[in-house]
Design a protein around this nucleic acid. Structure first.
Lengths: 123, 123, 123, 123
DNA sequence: GTGGTCTAGACCACT
DNA sequence: GTGGTCTAGACCACG
């Protein structure tokens, strides 16, 4: 399971796990009926608490991406990947809008905001 | 004091106050030796907790924009507005970078990220 | 907050809390905009872990019965109590059906099942 | 061996096996000194894990319904079927009581609980 | 004070 | 082995 945890950024670990598993489902790296790593094994691999992994798995099941079978494991279910992409874009849109609004609140011109954005995207 | 609080957005109230006061300093609406409204009066005006205003004022003093004189009030100090603008841009840059990284982590293409960004900026 | 925890039965503590708060909302003991006890205070009162209370509150928010404001607390929102009653009856129905099916699987006659049921209900 | 496994219901598989074997003993389909199917063969027949069958057989032996002879198999022992029926009723009673208590905890009236019960029993 | 996240460990039930 | 629940404590952000 290729999951990268960035403990230095402010995004909760469990949310980072959710994001990346959702993306792997969308991209087809995880297919219907695939089994996710066990809570404990992923926790060990990522060197984090099992509860944190469990919280991520709970969120995935809540959102309908997986089903958990007691004593067996957590399985990927059939997903409309188109819909998932739209949802992830909605999240990105909200983040960008927050950043832009904050910049404007600070009195930074749209030109300057765009310049910064391009600088980051290119760099 | 013209400060607008948006309780529905996810930016903490105290941070909104800090941002807007810093911007007013940078734009010259607040000059050296000007006195800020008292913690209690601003809290009353904005209908928020005095503790929240206090936290914003503390942050401003911590960053060197104001000095607080016990029993008198909080005063604006001399500021290099150029430097301030740069600092605010750095913050914006960090937010934009976070958003872009999250988008990429979700596997959204740079073109799609740029399209979303332009859509929001224009809209 | 009158909540009774039965640690000897197999129903998870957090679920017992959810059930009882939902019922108090339905019965009008908890009204719109009422604030729930803080996570820590309820935990202390019930002599359980704060995380267990938090799990219950998270479930309530997930189901749309409450909203949580960071740093302030958890508030009851407007609820269709009719709908809630129906939902709770659905849960009871499932439990009763499970019990009946198990009885039948053991070869106990419907007459005997009904007798037992009435015996318990009458007390 | 006529055993029906319902993986979709919430009763553990091993418990379903125990229930049905106990019932067959009580009804006389399984008599003293009859041999149960081997763990592996029953597991294969029901398409479940051999460990699950083993757990069911262990429970039966624990409760005194069978004896296991190492290297030979698991045999039914002499049973007071009257007593067994009583025991199974006790279990049903506990399940019904739990359901009723939960319904009452949710504030559902005894009349409503009875109506639901009859609806399920008749339906 | 409040909630949000995380840890390290425990015990239980199910396969 | 698996997941489900719970504990007792920690640190952080927000008001």
């Amino acid at each position: 399971m290729h999951i990268i945890i960035n403990t230095s950024c402010m995004v909760p670990i469990y949310e980072q796990i959710v994001d990346q598993i959702k993306t792997q489902i969308r991209k087809g790296n995880l297919k219907e009926n695939d089994i996710l790593p066990s809570v404990r094994s992923l926790a060990k691999e990522l060197k984090i608490s099992a509860l944190t992994v469990k919280k991520a798995y709970d969120a995935l099941e809540e959102e309908g991406f997986t089903v958990t079978v007691h004593g067996k494991g957590t399985y990927v279910v059939s997903i409309n990947t188109e819909l998932l992409l739209e949802e992830q874009k909605k999240e990105l849109e909200a983040d960008l809008e927050n950043a832009i609004q904050k910049g404007r609140r600070c009195g930074i011109s749209d030109e300057d905001i765009r310049s910064l954005f391009e600088l980051i995207l290119e760099g």
